[in-house]
């Protein structure tokens, strides 16, 4: 598995450096988008995976699901930090400021807060059984913010953020090769997340 991931990552990096043309008007640094989008994608995936295992733990009471839920949150926390930093750099490049509380920036910041609160809660509860229960409940409680972040928040503030690659209108506003590399990078990041989830401790 690691061999495949290393091969894929190397290919994608090579493609980004040599194959993808520089973004018009933004230059080479704008290629950080190939890092930002996959990282943001995995941080959202990690959030739902963590909640999924939290629900599984509450139903079955098996500690292995608690362990998986915690691991997804820890990985998600790393990825959400990476996504935020790379997003801020891209934002500086395209909008002229690192941060301006665009709805997407708000969303990812809330995600940092949720991951951080979840991990703080885990660190604060010494008893293993109690910790598993309490953090699973919090994980599921925090999922409730998703409809707000997805449906209500974007109506409250004007956004400059580009539409997601797979947007509701079903349009693709990218070069085919650009898109192919981006999708490969998203797949690669997902594979890294998946592999790290299965890592033996």
């Amino acid at each position: 598995m690691w061999k495949l991931i290393i091969f894929l990552t190397a290919t994608i990096i090579a493609a980004i450096i040599f194959f993808v043309p520089p973004v018009q008007g933004l230059g080479e640094l704008a290629k950080i988008i190939f890092f930002h989008v996959p990282a943001a994608w995995v941080s959202v995936v990690g959030f739902f995976v963590s909640a999924f295992y939290a629900a599984k733990f509450l139903r079955t009471g098996e500690m292995k699901f608690d362990e998986l839920s915690a691991r997804a949150a820890r990985l998600g926390f790393i990825f959400v930090i990476l996504a935020t930093v790379s997003g801020a750099i891209f934002s500086k490049l395209t909008w002229g400021a690192y941060w301006n509380w665009d709805p997407r920036q708000t969303t990812i910041f809330v995600l940092i807060l949720i991951y951080g609160a979840y991990l703080t809660l885990r660190a604060a509860v010494p008893n293993e059984k109690a910790r598993a229960k309490v953090s699973a409940v919090y994980s599921l409680l925090s999922v409730l913010t998703v409809p707000f972040l997805v449906f209500i928040l974007p109506r409250m503030y004007f956004s400059l953020h580009p539409e997601p690659v797979l947007n509701s209108a079903g349009r693709l506003e990218m070069d085919a090769e650009f898109l192919a590399v981006l999708l490969a990078a998203v797949l690669d990041a997902t594979l890294i997340f998946w592999r790290l989830m299965k890592e033996k401790t």
């Binding site: 609160a117 910790r131 925090s142 209500i152």
Partner: peptide, 26 residues
Amino acid sequence: LTVSASTKGGLFPILLFPVTLPIFLP
């Protein structure tokens, strides 16, 4: 949730804020 926590200082607002944000902003 925080009853079983050993370190309580500041834990409550940290946990509550993201969850209540949907009512906070409107």
